[in-house]
Nucleic acid binder design. Structure first.
Length: 411
RNA sequence: GGCAGGAUGGCGGAGCGGACAAACGCACCAGGCUGUAAACUUGGCGCCCUAAGGGCUACGGGGGUUCGAAUCCCUCUCCUGCCA
């Protein structure tokens, strides 16, 4: 069984088919990535509130941008003229891109889907934007992406089995077309497994993606979209044994610190997630004990750092009280300092995870982490999620032309 | 001294006889955020009881009218504008 290819090499001992934590090296056109690794989200060509040199100094090896957003603004022509995304952003390390597939859930009321393509109604100016599997690959290649995602169709939690099945069939069809459209000398193409929260459909999709020629990596998609955590991990668990060991595995849209620890334990190589940077901008800072809401009254007079024993610039220089003051005053520095802390926390978590895997002590690392860390409240999360989706829909409906109203955009 | 207007919850500010413990904003308190239309958003915010719900005290002070008053009348105190 080979565990080495021109683009990925498993480096931890005990190469086997049994899913478990592993280290590796992902080899891309713009350099190597030590895995497991975290991809900070830079949707519009920027990790919000941070400069590329910040991201590097925090331990960032690779970022993930969004082809849909960048195609709408500023447009791929300009980015190409600038030397691709790398030149445009001033970032010389690897870049992953998402196709725009995720926008089928986040912008679900602004699109129409057919087997041929998805048509978005631009959230910026209302013009129509067509994205087919072929054009999504071409777009990402023109951007100069090192990791390219096939166009897929994820669904929010709660869609019935029939809908999940149709999205699955379409995602597979699109993956085949993506693989044919992909030029191998460009970035690594990732096929994406779907299947919602139906275990048998997850199995079917994982098998399909595993067997698909012309892709270099495999991503698990369509999770962390509202389903309970145990369901999410059940879906990952049924998928992992079916994936070839020699291909890198990416878990799309995950996660929180506790999810990352769990994902690594299952043999996921790379993760991307908006959460660490987004919650930072909203005043939530990670510590080994859990998330701290810096706006809470108990930090008003706390002149110590947010987290003892943190090696980030924020904790080394500033107090919790100062951070709270910056947030209350809406000073721009607040967003930068908080993002620095959270990204450093996440990257350090990966550093520690890789060390533990190498030392053969990952199980202990995992237990210690969970023993100390209190995640956000699951019941509150579920309750708030519906409210958030509803407020988003209200915002969408307000700007939509009549003929686009009240269509769930599933297909 | 005269005339006019006004005093509402921590602040600003609606309300002008019953649906008012009182819109809305700010401040404050707590929660949420997972391939980012998120520097966003949800809830709470007189006091008491565990929630549903109920009780109590409240719209400058005092006194009236009324089944019922933040809302109408009288009076006192204080503020603001204009005229002397």
């Amino acid at each position: 069984m080979t565990t080495s290819t021109p683009y990925f090499r498993v480096t931890s001992p005990g190469e086997s088919l049994v899913p478990g934590p592993r280290t590796g090296v992902l080899i891309t056109p713009h350099g190597e990535i030590q895995t497991p690794a975290f991809l900070p989200v830079a949707t519009q060509g920027s990790v919000k509130a941070l400069s590329p040199s910040d991201v590097v100094s925090l331990g960032g090896q690779v970022v993930i941008c969004n082809a849909y957003h960048l195609a709408l603004r500023p447009g791929v022509d300009l980015i190409e003229q600038a030397g691709g995304l790398h030149g445009f952003m001033g970032w010389d390390r690897p870049i992953a891109t998402d196709s725009g597939g995720f926008q089928m859930t986040s912008l679900a009321h602004r699109l129409r889907i057919s087997d041929e393509a998805v048509t978005f109604l631009s959230h910026i100016d209302g013009t129509q934007f067509h994205l087919s599997p072929e054009s999504a690959v071409a777009l990402q290649e023109r951007l100069g992406a090192d990791m390219i995602m096939c166009l897929d169709q994820p669904l929010n939690y709660g869609v019935d089995r029939d809908g999940v099945e149709r999205a699955l069939v379409r995602t597979h069809l699109w993956a085949e077309r993506s693989a044919r459209a992909h030029r191998p000398e460009m970035g690594l193409l990732y096929g994406i497994a779907q299947g919602g929260t139906e275990a048998d459909l997850r199995v079917e999709s994982s098998r399909f993606v595993a067997a698909l020629d012309g892709t270099q990596g495999i991503a698990i998609g369509g999770l962390s979209l509202g389903e309970p955590k145990d369901v999410m991990w059940e879906m990952v668990d049924v998928s992992m044994p079916l994936l070839p060991v020699h291909k890198p595995r990416h878990l799309l849209g995950v996660g929180s610190p506790e999810d990352i620890v769990e994902g690594v334990a299952r043999g996921i190589d790379t993760f991307d997630c908006a959460l660490p940077t987004r919650v930072a901008r909203n005043g939530a800072l990670y510590t080994p004990q859990g998330r701290v809401d810096i706006l809470n009254a108990r930090y008003t007079q706390d002149l110590g750092p947010v987290m003892e024993a943190c090696d980030c610039e924020t904790c080394g220089t500033h107090s919790a009280a100062y951070l709270q003051h910056l947030f209350k005053a809406k000073e721009l520095l607040a967003y930068r300092l908080a993002s620095i802390h959270n990204l450093r926390f996440i990257h350090r978590l990966f550093d520690d995870a890789r060390s533990a895997i190498t030392a053969g002590t990952y199980e202990q690392f995992r237990r210690d982490f969970h023993a100390a860390y209190t995640p956000s409240d699951a019941a509150a999360r579920e309750e708030q999620r519906g409210l958030w989706l509803r407020s988003q829909q209200a915002r969408e409906q307000a700007n939509l032309p009549d003929e686009w109203e009240s269509d769930p955009g599933l297909d």
